[in-house]
């Protein structure tokens, strides 16, 4: 279960101290962690106690991952380097990597795990941390949370495992001096923070939408090889699953609409919005 002692390959970072320079000049490698999720407009249906993947009409990038990828592309354009797109999951995820290649990802890595959706957070993070280390990336870009689990554990968790800094809810990253500047929210608005590699940047809605691919990019993406790394290839013991998913179910039916008379009912509605609907 312990990530660091079960790794078989040489570690790039030991207790947070980079033992190999990986972020100099245009040798910088940015790993972008991408997750394939049902498109946010797709209907979600449940079958046999699980969300029915076969009923998903369209798979897409998790939306915040798109901002991460775009920011990585822009950083690469300003400082040079290489972008490694990493996704973990079943075979269907390869399409996501092709889409990433079509907009400019240089290297495509599929961490192959058919039962990825059943993994607990520890297993997911162990796997991705191992992939990130194998990629030699010193910067890791990802979304603040995936649109399926809506959790947001992966970015900070991977940072912890590889001994990296982590800035979350990032909208913008730039290179400055030998380090990086990121914009994130603060209690009084926003703030710019300085960090150095290794660092994980977990993106909120960024300043730029992901660029549209073009035909040339699509044709190059078609030819680009996808490296498939299995759990075995990564030489990592991801540990036992500590969380048993009992079931997925459709959300509780909303009660039928309720109608109230007069402005004095406003406070009742407001309490219901907080306690019943849980939306404020």
């Amino acid at each position: 279960m312990n990530f660091k002692t079960t790794t078989l390959r040489p570690l790039k970072f030991i207790d947070g101290i980079p033992v190999e320079g990986t972020s100099k000049g245009n040798h910088m490698t940015i790993a972008v962690l991408l997750k394939q999720v049902p498109d946010t407009t797709a209907k979600i249906s449940v079958n046999g106690g699980r969300v029915d993947e076969n009923a998903v009409s369209k798979w897409s990038f998790s939306p915040y991952d798109e901002y991460a990828l775009e920011a990585a592309l822009q950083l690469k354009e300003s400082t040079g380097g290489e972008i490694v797109a990493i996704t973990a999951g079943p075979a269907r995820c390869e399409k996501l990597l092709r889409d990433a290649a079509a907009v400019g990802a240089d290297t495509l890595v599929h961490v192959s795990a058919e039962n990825f959706n059943e993994f607990d957070s520890t297993q997911v993070q162990n796997l991705l941390a191992a992939a990130v280390q194998k990629s030699s990336a010193s910067l890791i870009f990802c979304g603040k949370q995936a649109a399926d689990t809506n959790a947001g554990s992966t970015g900070p968790g991977v940072a912890e495992l590889i001994g990296a800094s982590c800035v979350t809810l990032v909208t913008e990253v730039s290179s400055e001096g030998g380090g990086y500047t990121a914009t994130r929210p603060s209690s009084s608005g926003h703030e710019k923070v300085a960090v150095s590699a290794p660092c994980v940047f977990a993106f909120d809605k960024g300043v730029s939408e992901m660029r549209r691919p073009n035909v040339r990019g699509i044709m190059m993406a078609k030819k680009k090889p996808i490296e498939t790394w299995s759990v075995g290839d990564l030489g990592v013991d991801i540990g036992a699953n500590g969380v048993n998913i009992d079931s997925h179910s459709p959300p509780a039916e909303k009660p039928p609409g309720q109608k109230f008379e007069g402005a004095e009912s406003v406070s009742t509605v407001v309490s219901k919005l907080r306690d019943e609907a849980n939306v404020i």
């Binding site: 049902p38 946010t40 209907k43 979600i44 449940v46 969300v51 649109a147 399926d148 689990t149 809506n150 969380v243 048993n244 998913i245 009992d246 079931s247 997925h248 179910s249 459709p250 959300p251 509780a252």
Partner: peptide, 10 residues
């Protein structure tokens, strides 16, 4: 999960 389109029990 899925932004409230489903519920997970674990």
């Amino acid at each position: 999960i899925y932004s409230g389109k489903a519920v997970e029990t674990s």
